[in-house]
């Protein structure tokens, strides 16, 4: 086994060159270069997590803006609805007032017309009475030759008219 057979003549060279090469590896590569590689990886990790955080924050802000927009939308909708309801109520009230005025006007017109009709029909009735009383006097005079008084004829006509 050369590892044991050659140990006496090779151990110093082995140790020397190992320390030299491993020293180079440790001081130049391990201490000089590895921290830089590690720093790059760490910086990248930090950047990625930072970007992710920023994206999350932006997402939250967008959600907030949307909620805000929705709230304002609902608010303005409610305001519009209230305005509409108010206008409707006002219009209904105005219409009612106008309707009442028109109703009163129409009622008074109807009253006047009815009074006129009544007057006309009364006048007509009176005329009919006179005409009927004249006719009745004529009929009485022709049938019985008695000249009925105007008063009696009028009463008889009134009685007949009242009985239909």
């Amino acid at each position: 086994m050369p590892q044991i057979a050659q140990i006496a003549e090779t151990y110093s060279s082995q140790i020397f060159w190992l320390l030299l090469t491993f020293g180079f590896v440790f001081f130049v590569i391990g201490l000089g270069m590895v921290p830089k590689v590690q720093a790059t990886a760490d910086a990248r990790d930090a950047k990625i997590s930072g970007d992710l955080d920023a994206a999350k924050a932006a997402f939250a802000r967008a959600d907030e803006a949307e909620a805000d927009y929705r709230a304002r939308d609902a608010e303005s909708r409610a305001a519009a609805q209230a305005l509409l309801a108010k206008a409707k109520a006002e219009a209904a009230k105005a219409a009612e007032v106008k309707l009442a005025a028109a109703d009163a006007d129409i009622a008074s017109q109807i009253g006047a017309a009815e009074a006129r009709i009544k007057a006309a029909s009364d006048a007509a009735m009176a005329e009919i009475e006179t005409v009927a009383a004249d006719a009745a006097r004529d009929m009485v005079a022709r049938i019985s030759g008695v000249d009925a008084s105007d008063e009696a004829a009028r009463n008889a006509v009134k009685a007949a008219l009242a009985h239909g």
């Binding site: 003549e9 090779t10 110093s12 060279s13 082995q14 020397f16 060159w17 190992l18 030299l20 090469t21 491993f22 180079f24 590896v25 590569i29």
Partner: peptide
């Protein structure tokens, strides 16, 4: 101490 540059040392240098 002998510090001959051996085939072993060559491979140490190669690894480094």
């Amino acid at each position: 101490f002998n510090i001959a540059f051996t085939n072993s040392a060559l491979y140490m240098v190669a690894a480094a």
